[in-house]
Amino acid sequence: MVNRVVTGAHYGLRDWLAQRITAVVMALFTLFVAVYLLLQPAVDYDVWAGLFSNNVMRSFALLFLLSLFYHAWIGVRDIVMDYVKPASVRLLVHVAVILALVLYVIWSVQILWGM
């Protein structure tokens, strides 16, 4: 392969947009949980467990976590693109990050639905 600077991958917009949208989802969830907990007279295990016993809340939490992971993927990928110069190492790091995030998704479902 010749050593030449190559660009033109024809992606970027979708990820940039996704990062904005996932940020909104995360902000809404954080705000909701913060306000909910502030409105409780006392925050104990029962309140916390009660909140997450609801399937709607679990789904909202999963949506939040999926947003977090996708958001993190784009952010970490951007950092790697800036600082890891050899393309082969970059690919390896990208794969490692994706695999870790996929495991986090499975783990999240496991935690939320108590499986």
Binding site: T7, G8, A9, H10, Y11, G12, L13, D15, W16, D78, M81, D82
Partner: peptide, 14 residues
């Protein structure tokens, strides 16, 4: 727009 739809050419802008 095609020319700039690229993770490096445009989307390095943070």
């Amino acid at each position: 727009l095609d020319n700039l739809e690229d993770p490096y050419r445009l989307f390095r802008c943070h």
